[in-house]
């Protein structure tokens, strides 16, 4: 009798052990895959650093692109990127937050809202080069705006709009409804509730989304190439601020421009290895910018989560 029970016990133990081994094997495979993927990321960063970091110098940042690889720099590219990002942020953030606020707080559940939602999710999946074609056909030739900072900023703003909308909606969803109800309870109307209570408490989440969106925009190349902005730019747009009245001017919006990823692509497509070094150096700077922005966004979200938890 007890022998039989022992046998059964041993069989059960074997089964349990087999299952534990299964789990262990899968866990190891999972970690291996993670290591391979992360290894690729590390290799990519290391390769870029080895090729390019020696090229980064104050002269590299303050010189215009040139036919001689050793004398070329990214001055017009990083200034172009900065100006384009200003335009992108100024368009995408208000529009994205507005649309997110409407869809999350105002919209009734009807066919129209449904259509807008399907549409936003589809826009997020439209290839960036299609936005470039839109800008080429509509902004550049339809409205005759040319290949300017304004058009570059607008096309990137359209591109990241869905990211800002989705982030805004998530941030709004996390605002406790008690806040909403108590604000209505003291007699605030809908806009007052939004402006004074809901938006301020959703601000960190919205900010995170905006930064992630901008970090995507900063590295986008295809739409800018498509509008035909890949040209030799060895001058700067007019300065937005000046020492004489009227101090601020907007001529820079209508100036031709180049941006960092375009400059990098340009140098990659040259056959000479010396230009590849320049490309790698530009890549290091670009990667540094995007990773910094993303790191900041991740940090913000982490802090936000901790705040919500406690």
């Amino acid at each position: 009798m007890s022998g039989e029970a022992d046998l059964e016990h041993a069989a059960t133990m074997r089964l349990v052990r087999a299952k534990r081994v299964q789990d262990l094997v899968f866990g190891v495979i999972g970690i291996l895959v993670l290591i391979v993927v992360m290894g690729l990321l590390v290799t990519l960063v290391a390769d870029l650093l080895i090729d390019g970091v020696g090229r980064i110098s104050p002269e590299f940042l303050t010189s215009f692109p040139s036919r001689r690889a050793a004398g070329a720099g990214v001055l017009s590219a990083w200034i172009g990127t900065t100006l384009v990002m200003l335009v992108t942020a100024a368009i995408a953030v208000p529009l994205g937050v507005g649309a997110g606020l409407y869809l999350e707080e105002y919209a009734a559940k009807n066919i129209l809202t449904d259509a807008i939602e399907i549409n936003v999710s589809n826009l997020a999946g439209v290839p960036s080069i299609i936005y470039g074609l839109l800008a080429l056909g509509f902004f550049v030739y339809g409205l005759n705006l040319g290949q300017t900072v304004l058009v570059g900023g607008m096309v990137l703003a359209l591109l990241i709009l869905p990211i800002v909308i989705v982030a805004t909606r998530e941030a709004l969803r996390a605002v406790p409804s008690g806040l909403r109800e108590s604000a209505y309870g003291i007699g605030a109307n809908r806009w007052q509730v939004m402006w004074s209570y809901i938006l301020p408490s959703a601000r960190p989440g919205i900010l995170t989304g905006a930064i992630v969106g901008l970090s995507r925009a900063i590295g986008e190349t295809a739409p800018i190439i498509t509008i035909g902005a890949l040209t030799y730019i060895a001058f700067l747009p007019p300065a937005p601020v000046s020492a004489t009245p009227p101090w601020i001017n907007f001529d820079w919006l209508n100036s031709p421009f180049t941006v960092m990823p375009i400059q990098m692509f340009n140098w990659i497509s040259r056959p000479q290895a010396a230009f590849h070094v320049n490309a790698a150096a530009t890549g290091v700077l670009l990667l540094g910018m995007t990773l910094l922005m993303n790191g900041f966004a991740i940090y913000l979200r982490y802090r936000l989560r901790r705040l919500v938890r406690t």
């Binding site: 507005g98 409407y102 105002y106 549409n119 056909g137 509509f138």
Partner: peptide, 29 residues
């Protein structure tokens, strides 16, 4: 409040316009 609600709706509706503009540009061009 009413003005803002209209503006917010306009920014949400803009996304539909973007899709429309994409299709229109691709087809006509």
């Amino acid at each position: 409040a009413a003005v803002m609600q209209a503006l917010l709706f306009a920014s949400a509706a803009l996304s539909v316009l973007i899709t429309g503009a994409i299709v229109w540009v691709l087809v006509t061009e």
